[in-house]
Structure formats: structure tokens, C-alpha cells
Design a protein around this nucleic acid. Structure first.
Lengths: 133, 133
DNA sequence: ATTACAATTACACAACTGTGCAAGTATGAT
DNA sequence: ATCATACTTGCACAGTTGTGTAATTGTAAT
């Protein structure tokens, strides 16, 4: 449990040691919960669908080709993190994204995933500048 | 497994049915993997730290008060999703965020988590407009 | 009231994930 | 070559998570 103190001196670390103000435990906790909720293909698909407009559970189940109960469970997880919101519409319950932040998040991560893997600088390589230094 | 066809007609669903172009399976898969990687407090904290500048494993372990092996495993997960990149620096291996998308993602989700829960429109309520309609 | 449809929830089981310990690899110094 | 430091990985165990079936709740209509 107790980590040992490193023997490497601070001078060995040329990285920017700007001591970025770390977010509080609560913020980290909440943010990671949101990410985890989006961290499953099935749920992220649901989010992508909801980004196109609000839907009732039956619609979503039909679109996804899944059990109603399964969709409901997924929505439950999303709702627990305030990622989606629901509203009664007569016999149906319509779900939609909680706010603009959420559509931002979804589109950002999807945009990144759609991009080609940058072949510019592969892992474990050094830049040209570093090579001559 | 086979979902039953819903008996509710499309006319019942006033939501924007704009048939948003759904992202491909691959994009969804990759995006959700990224989210899942960020979906754990410990790993997200690591990301927040790396957002402040590149670090070696020992530094991170010391900062987090964790075993070196634990940090290494976390970095492994992040690296598997191309979220972070590593580079040898003599005796050390420095990790840093893979690209600008990643710092964007991290700061966006953290910003959202730091915000107060909007008290504007609670769940399962209807807007004023809808009340008179 | 009863009936029908929409959605949620409880439960149980399988699959996955994170962690620490211990062993292994890689680099630099002597 | 040996030694020490820095990091990674294999393994096993505990804790978590997603899914379907079946039972339950809630709403609207008759």
C-alpha cells in the first residue's frame, strides 16, 4: 500500500512541472461517472440517437432491435448520471439529452473516433528536435 | 431476443424524428472505449495530471500515492486506446496526452462535473409551453 | 371496475475489470 | 560483466456490471 519514495531527483524530469491545479475529488468522481456511463457501445449509441431528437423507450428499443427492458436499464444508468432527462407524453415517456454539454461531449468523442489514427509521430519515438538535442 | 413490434404509431411521437445519421459501428466502438478508459476516477485523475505536462511513471505514482505497478497498469489501459503516448527520456519514460482532442475531452467533462446541477427544469416535469398546449 | 399498453424493477447468472504481489525486462552507471 | 533504478507484465482474487426473464407499476381507454 505505501508507495516507496522515488530516488530520481526533480532535476531529472524536464517535463512541464507547472503543478496544474488538480480538480477536486468530487469533480473527478462525477466526471468519471459520466464517462463510464458513455463507456459502453450500447449506451453511447442511445446517446447518439437521442442527439437526433427525443425518443420514447419503445422507439429506441425498436431502433436498436433490443428488449424494452434492456433499453430501460440503459436509460436508467444514463439518467442516474443526469446525462438524459425524461418527460411524460401521455402514454409514452420521452427521453432526451440533459443539456448542450452532453451533445458536445458525444459529438466530440465521436468525431475523435472517426478520425484516422495520426501516423505523424508513433509511440516511443522522439521528435526531430529532440534527436539533435 | 427478438423484440416485439410496438403498437404505438409514429404519429404518437412528436419528437424530432430527423433520422440523424447514426455513426458507424466502428466509430461507436472506438468512442465508447475511449470513454470507458476515462470512466474511472483513478485514470481520469491521471489524465488531469498529464494535462499539466508530461510525467514519468514514478512521478505519477508519488503524486497519487500509489504503487508503481498500479500506475503502470492504468497507463497501459489509457495507452491501449491511444489516449496517452509515451517516450523514453534516458532512464525514465515520460507519458503525455496523445493530442489536443484529449485535453479538450478531459476539460469538457471536468467542467461539466464542476457545474452545479441545474435547478431550472427538474426531471419528469413539463415546460410552461407544454402546459398550455 | 377491467383491459391493454408502456415502462420500470428485482433477481440471478455470466462476463468483465481493477488491484497487489512477484517475477521479468530494459536502460544507464561502474 | 554486475548492480541499481525504472518500468512492465502474469497471475489470482475480489468487486462490479450488463443481460434476460418475470413480476410490478403507471397511464389511458372502455
Amino acid at each position: 500500500m505505501e508507495p516507496l519514495a522515488p530516488t530520481c531527483s526533480p532535476a531529472e524530469h524536464p517535463g512541464v512541472r507547472k503543478q496544474f491545479p488538480m480538480p477536486g475529488t468530487l469533480a473527478i468522481e462525477r466526471a468519471s461517472r459520466v464517462c463510464r456511463a458513455l463507456g459502453e457501445p450500447a449506451r453511447l449509441r442511445l446517446m447518439a440517437r437521442l442527439a437526433g431528437g427525443e425518443c420514447c423507450v419503445t422507439e429506441l428499443a425498436e431502433a436498436e432491435g433490443e428488449e424494452l427492458s434492456t433499453i430501460s436499464q440503459r436509460l436508467r444508468v444514463l439518467r442516474a448520471e443526469n446525462i438524459v432527462v425524461r418527460r411524460r407524453r401521455g402514454k409514452h415517456i420521452n427521453y432526451s439529452l440533459a443539456d448542450d454539454h452532453m451533445s458536445d461531449l458525444v459529438s466530440t468523442v465521436l468525431a475523435h473516433a472517426s478520425e484516422p489514427v495520426e501516423p505523424v509521430l508513433k509511440d516511443d519515438q522522439q521528435t526531430e528536435e529532440e534527436a539533435k538535442a
